[in-house]
Design a protein around this nucleic acid. Structure first.
Length: 428
RNA sequence: GGAGGGUUGUCCGAACUGGUCAAGGAACUCGUCUUGAAAACGAGCGCCCGCAAGGGCUUGUGGGUUCGAGUCCCACACCCUCCGCCA
């Protein structure tokens, strides 16, 4: 959520920042709406406060008169009218504040200054690692290899739950478990993260805290459990970031860094029929997520650090990848700056997004009310929150299969996973 | 699912039958004192509106009763105890 005070103080700057996302008309309208509502709001506060001051003074007088045994009927009659008026003013004020909140909750984060303007086509590859080379035989797509080696059974998953709910079997299942264990170990031992297993459902306050509510939910992308007011987590970012919701942290506790495994559930309402082949796009998938809470002045460098931590996973797996700085129009709702990690998959002949590392600055912290006291005696400030996949499993699995495939139909297992799996390759 | 108890500020914790500023303490900040510190003492220590003076709000959340609600009523959330059910 953007800072109402800042919108009031520098509306022009806020307009320009938001316009970088590419829909100036809509964002300008939101800012203007907030400004006019805020003006009305402050006028009503003035009126209401004056009435309440009168009420407080008279109530005190009534108390004194009653204690003395005097009558107070005359002012009590006056106060009935004042109380009515206060109720009306407060009711209108609540409406206005709810509307301001509604607009603000639907308004995305402002992109960082260094973020390129434009849509997806304006994304910038900032670096790459490894050679996206194809083998000297015709590489096959992962769904063929997977079926042949019995790594997963998509028709079975479709029967049990529906299309997009995969079933991993045999070495494929063990590979998922190995990847999760190894990634958690890597980030905990080498990168200093605290391991966490969060709830896989969250309440509405949590969805609001990280920015999924209201938009993501309204657009039908979340799995809901109406009977309990819960949602299946679309990413561990939601429960883990909300671990510190409504907390006032000691500055010495920062940074806080969590690595968490969770399955992720997404309805992908807007993406029907797109990239549906094999494991490319799923309704349920596993992910290891990195979440950091930082002092504001450290969040920019923390995003670089967190991105390097995610990259380390791909390097150790030996998968060629590139780092893409997202343009403003391609940014997620809550993010001010995002690096996508895209891994090369020769079988499908494409770069696949396996991680998205974002600095949300104070956008989520303001929604979730996550603060810290910079120094003893100073005012609490909002922390900056960051998150990134470290990394998502299915597309990493695709890359492992398609990059590891051999002419004889076997798939070579990366060295780092061998202690977890006990084999060097998967064979037919 | 049933019964009971609870939720007060950064933390701890009080407030009889509704009528002062939500007592007091701890921590923290500034100041006085001190060679320095501790102790002691004084002030400050949440949010909103306002240039300011000042005013308003804040006892889990949301309603209600009342001139006036931490206090009374209703609903909900969460925590604790017990019963039931159950991995």
């Amino acid at each position: 959520m953007l800072d109402l005070k800042r919108i009031r103080q520098e509306p022009g700057a806020v307009r320009d920042e938001l316009a970088r996302r590419g829909n100036r008309e809509a964002t300008d309208a939101a800012v203007d709406r907030v400004l006019s509502l805020d003006e009305e709001r402050r006028a009503l506060i003035g009126e209401g406060d004056a009435l309440k001051a009168r009420r407080n003074a008279v109530s005190q007088e009534v108390g004194e008169r009653k204690r003395r045994g005097d009558a107070a009927d005359d002012v009590i009659v006056e106060m009935r009218a004042v109380a009515e008026r206060i109720k009306a003013v407060d009711a209108r004020l609540r409406e206005i504040e709810a509307e301001i909140e509604d607009v603000l909750l639907h308004t995305p984060n402002a992109p960082d200054a260094g973020v390129p303007v434009g849509g997806e086509e304006a994304n910038v590859v900032v670096r790459s690692w490894g050679e996206p080379c194809s083998p000297d035989f015709e590489p096959r797509p992962h769904w063929e290899i997977g079926a042949e080696l019995g790594l997963f059974d998509l028709p079975a998953g479709a029967k049990v739950a529906g299309s997009g709910f995969p079933v991993f079997t045999g070495w494929g299942a063990r590979l998922q478990r190995a990847l999760v264990s190894w990634m958690l170990d890597l980030h905990r031992e080498n990168h200093g993260y605290t391991e966490a297993i969060p709830p896989f459902v969250v309440n509405q306050a949590s969805m609001l805290g990280t920015g999924q509510y209201p938009k993501f939910v309204e657009e039908g992308d979340a799995y809901e459990i109406p009977a309990d007011g819960l949602y299946l987590v679309p990413t561990a970012e939601v429960p883990v970031t909300n671990l510190l919701r409504d907390e006032l942290l000691d500055a010495v506790r920062l940074p806080v860094a969590y690595v968490a495994y969770s399955p992720c559930f997404r309805r992908e309402a807007g993406a029907a029929g797109k990239d549906t082949r094999g494991l490319l796009r799923l309704h349920q998938f596993d992910k290891v997520e990195l979440v950091r809470f930082e002092r504001p002045e450290h969040s920019s460098e923390a995003l670089e650090l967190l991105t390097r931590h995610a990259e380390r996973v791909l390097q150790l797996l030996g998968l060629p990848y590139r780092v893409v700085l997202l343009a403003a129009g391609d940014l997620g709702f809550s993010s001010s700056r995002t690096y996508d990690l895209e891994v090369w998959a020769p079988g499908v002949g494409r770069w696949l997004e396996v991680s998205s590392c974002s600095n949300c600055r104070d956008f989520q912290a303001r929604r979730a009310n996550i603060r810290f006291r910079p120094a003893p005696g100073e005012k609490p400030e909002f922390v900056h929150t960051l998150n990134g996949s470290g990394v998502a499993l299915p597309r990493t699995t695709i890359a492992l299969i398609e990059n590891g495939q051999q002419a004889d139909g076997s798939v070579v297992v990366p060295e780092v996973l061998r202690p977890y799996l006990g084999v060097e390759r998967f064979t037919p």
